[in-house]
């Protein structure tokens, strides 16, 4: 697979391909610098080699209010390992140089990006080879901070919807988002969960009635069983905490979980 497009176009291609294969795109999350810089890159490469569809590239922040204990601990380690905004951009550049072709979305809280310079970050991320931005503490009403520079660079700017979002919120998010909508599965913070919520089908149907944008589910998606469940329901899904927890038992465990989840998404 070679990389033929960037930004929103690359995401469009990713969703089109998954759709043709009648499955939801699998986008694992990895935090640059966890457990250290080199190993985080190795992990992304090894999982990319499985053929997964895309990546959420975590950039650590000292005060991650939307994250549960697993990601808090991992990003804290990444910070102690010296991960910075610049290093995260280097990581993307290096991964592209090594031939990684899948879309990569930079995930960061707002403050490190603002400190780096919002416009400059978007430009540098595009130049490094990233495809978009996920900022969990940036609701659409504050989109102005990144909207113009993302539009100019062709980078996707992802907004979230949650079970608490009403029709007005759904309209605001879908009117502003590019790339896809990040659908928060539950009312809560990130973290592995045993079950997906029972209301999921109705919830997704409620969103589908309002938008044609691709819907990517995250928060709590943890297992091959979940991946199977999402087939035909969402356009993609993100797995984060479950992979980190598997990794605590060893690289091979993490790799096996990513492989099994990806396989399940294709069954």
């Amino acid at each position: 697979m070679t990389r033929q497009s960037q930004g929103t176009a690359a995401l469009d291609a990713m969703f089109a391909r998954a759709k043709k294969q009648n499955r939801a795109a699998f986008m694992p999350y990895f935090c640059i610098g966890y457990p250290d810089y080199d190993e985080s890159l190795c992990a992304i490469e090894a999982v990319a080699a499985l053929g997964v569809d895309g990546f959420e590239i975590g950039m650590p922040f000292s005060d991650p209010i939307a994250d549960g204990p697993t990601i808090q601990a991992a990003t804290q380690i990444a910070l102690e390992q010296g991960a910075t905004v610049r290093l995260c951009l280097d990581a993307v550049r290096q991964l592209r140089a090594r031939g990684l072709s899948q879309p990569m979305l930079m995930m960061s809280y707002a403050n490190p990006l603002v400190a780096y310079g919002a416009d400059r970050f978007v430009r540098d991320a595009r130049d490094a080879g990233a495809d978009g931005l996920i900022v969990p503490d940036l609701p659409p009403e504050e989109a102005a901070l990144f909207a113009d520079s993302c539009a100019r660079a062709g980078m996707a700017l992802i907004f979230f919807l949650a079970p608490t979002s009403n029709d007005e919120r759904i309209e605001m998010a879908t009117a502003n988002a590019t790339g896809f909508i990040y659908v928060v599965s539950l009312t809560g913070i990130t973290g592995a969960r045993k079950e997906l919520p029972a209301y999921l089908t109705d919830y997704i149907a409620r969103l589908r009635a309002k938008t044609e944008m691709p819907l990517v589910l995250g928060f709590g998606v943890s297992s091959p069983a979940h991946a199977r469940q999402l087939r035909g329901l969402t356009d993609g899904f993100i797995v984060a905490s479950a992979l980190i927890r598997a990794w605590e038992r060893g690289f091979d465990e993490m790799h096996a979980l990513a492989r099994d989840i990806f396989a399940a998404s294709q069954e």
Partner: peptide, 20 residues
């Protein structure tokens, strides 16, 4: 109306609590 005092303030929180 957006919660700004000049250029300061606003609402930078996860979507989940915006309706609240």
């Amino acid at each position: 109306a957006r919660g700004y005092f000049g250029e300061f303030g606003g609402r930078f929180v996860p979507e989940t609590i915006i309706p609240a």
